[in-house]
Nucleic acid binder design. Structure first.
Length: 217
DNA sequence: GGCCAGGTGTAAA
DNA sequence: TTTACACATGGC
């Protein structure tokens, strides 16, 4: 493997996801729920996040204003299945509060928020910020993570920082955009490419498949 | 029973 | 500026 484009193409044909999941890997992309999920999923399996989200949903709390106002103790109770519930509750509530303060509502936030602003919030690191930007706001940005790191390392690529790894991954895609558009007969855009790429990498990581097999094509 | 998950912040060295 | 540790649940 010489660049991330080759990795993307190899993963494209892996059928790691069902068609539906594949199209929109992060559940309810583009909604406020992504912000909640991004925090809850930190160092936690997604099935646990689903439990927490369900707890919030049945109490009609999956709204920016509701979480900004809720008592942290109660919020912590609802998100308990996702672990680190005290810190996550505190940070999630604070984030929602700040979003309302600065952007008024989620739609404004979606259009106007910057990566820098997100990174300045407690509880939002590189990965959560990028997940919110991509899956929550529909921005053209690729999330990288531990799975990406492991995967690249197995092919001999090592990076000093998150952002160096991300830059290498995004560069390989952007330099081969025309080829990807051809592969999909023009029925794809950069957002969707990044969205799926990260999803595929995560699913591959979870599947514990032999990483080497994927490039035998 | 240890290990790990769709990480992040902080304190010590 | 690195490294170590806390945060915590639950499935395998």
């Amino acid at each position: 493997m010489n660049n991330s484009f080759e990795l993307f193409v190899a993963l494209k044909n892996q059928n790691l996801l069902s068609q539906t999941e594949d199209l929109n890997w992060w559940p309810n992309s583009g909604s406020f729920e992504v912000i909640v999920g991004a925090i809850l999923t930190q160092q936690t399996k997604w099935v646990k996040v689903e439990k927490s989200l369900e707890n919030l949903r049945v109490h009609n709390l999956l709204h920016l204003e509701k979480i900004a106002d809720i008592d942290v103790k109660i919020l912590a109770e609802f998100i308990k299945p996702s672990g680190f519930y005290n810190t996550k509750a505190k940070r999630l509530k604070m984030l929602c509060h700040k979003i309302i303060e600065v952007y008024s509502d989620f739609d404004n936030f979606k259009n106007e928020v910057t990566r820098e602003w997100l990174l300045a919030q407690k509880g939002i690191g590189f990965e959560s910020a990028d997940a919110i930007l991509c899956y929550g706001c529909g921005r053209e940005i690729l999330v990288v993570d531990n799975y990406t790191n492991k995967l690249l390392k197995s092919f001999g690529y090592e990076f000093e920082t998150y952002e160096q790894m991300q830059e290498w991954m995004m560069k390989g895609i952007e330099e081969n955009l025309e080829n990807i558009y051809k592969l999909y007969e023009g029925k794809i855009n950069l957002y969707t490419i990044y969205s799926r790429f990260h999803g595929k990498i995560v699913e591959l990581g979870k599947s514990k498949k032999d990483i080497r097999e994927i490039l035998l094509c």
